[in-house]
Computed example of a mutant assay.
Amino acid sequence: MDRFLSIEAFVRVAETSSFAEAARQLGVTGSVVTNRIQQLERFLNAPLFHRSTRHVRLSDVGEAFYRDCAEVVGRVNELTDQMRELRATPTGRLRVQMLPGFALGHFGASLAEFNRRYPGIQLDVIVNDRVVDPIEEGFDVAFQIFPAISDSLIERRLFTVRRLFCAAPSYVSEHGAPQHPRDLLAHRTALYSGYPSRNRWTMTRGDEVVALELPGIIRSNSVHLLHDYALTGGGIVCLPTLVASTSLLEGSLVPILADYVLSPMNFAAVYPETQRQGLKVKALVEFLAEQVSPEPAWDVPLIERGWVK
């Protein structure tokens, strides 16, 4: 029995709750993974999983064994990557989930530089705004604005995502601009549907805190669609500044209620514990951190104008 391969198979099954998915991620057949787990169980003289036709879950022994095994696998991967880093540049395929708001207009513009810097890395980029578990869905790293959904995941925060309400000058000319958050209830609003707070919005100005239900005449999971809607003069939208900044600076959109602050969110890289020092993941995360440090370029002029804080 190759103990490390068996331990690695055990960690992957524990993380994915699936023998088939663990086999896919390891690049072996399902029978190989099953055999490695069975060998490890015979060696330990204890079952590591409770299996049924629909579920795979850790036994009490497996629960106790998992964390130390995950650290072992992570440490071996770390040492291997460190040696590769001394001898060569990172190579291989990196499967990435990327938030659309950053993928369109920012990440795409940086890809050529990343390719020049790391020609051996092939990126497989899936663009969507779902909160994913990278382990279960086979991503090496996911970039998202909501907290990691599992304690077994590492979260590296890269920058603050600021939001503000805005509208086209034509809409403001025709309907006027709200002076207080509650005035939004009398306007046509279009809102992003993916925030966990749903229809409830909280805005602050100094010690003043305003909470209101704002259902919106249009709701969408695409901030780019909302941006296009705002440009037509259709209504007031709430957009992340990473999408709205250019239009605000050009004057095709104007800020609404800029003296009130919406709670910011964090754009973060989320990846499995076993990828903590993965060379390809580290290369991409550090590259993006460098691109947006210390403040994102799209926010600097908005901060200087006092439109966001």
Rank of each mutant, 00 (worst) to 15 (best):
G233H: 02
G234S: 08
G234A: 14
G234D: 02
G235N: 03
I236T: 05
I236R: 01
I236H: 04
I236L: 07
V237L: 00
V237R: 06
C238I: 03
C238E: 15
C238D: 14
C238T: 05
L239R: 08
L239G: 02
L239A: 07
L239N: 07
P240E: 12
P240A: 12
P240M: 11
P240S: 15
T241H: 06
T241S: 14
T241C: 15
T241L: 13
T241E: 13
L242A: 06
L242F: 11
L242I: 14
L242W: 14
V243C: 12
V243L: 05
A244Q: 04
T246V: 10
T246M: 06
T246G: 08
T246L: 06
T246D: 14
S247I: 10
S247H: 08
S247R: 09
S247W: 04
S247M: 07
L248Y: 09
L248A: 07
L249N: 06
E250R: 15
G251D: 10
G251V: 11
G251R: 10
G251W: 10
G251A: 10
S252Y: 10
S252M: 08
S252P: 01
S252G: 06
S252C: 09
L253V: 07
L253W: 03
L253E: 09
L253I: 09
L253M: 11
V254E: 15
V254Q: 14
V254L: 15
V254W: 03
V254F: 07
P255Y: 09
P255W: 04
P255L: 03
P255H: 10
I256A: 02
I256N: 00
I256E: 03
L257T: 00
L257K: 03
L257H: 01
L257Q: 04
A258Q: 12
A258Y: 06
A258V: 03
A258E: 11
A258K: 11
D259Y: 04
D259A: 10
D259Q: 10
D259P: 07
Y260R: 01
Y260I: 02
Y260F: 13
V261H: 12
V261M: 06
V261E: 13
V261Q: 13
L262W: 06
L262C: 10
L262K: 01
L262E: 08
L262G: 05
L262T: 01
L262N: 03
S263C: 08
P264S: 14
P264M: 12
M265S: 15
M265Q: 14
M265P: 04
M265N: 11
M265R: 14
N266L: 11
N266W: 08
N266M: 13
N266Y: 05
F267N: 01
F267Q: 08
A268I: 02
A268T: 10
A268Q: 13
A268K: 04
A268G: 02
A268S: 15
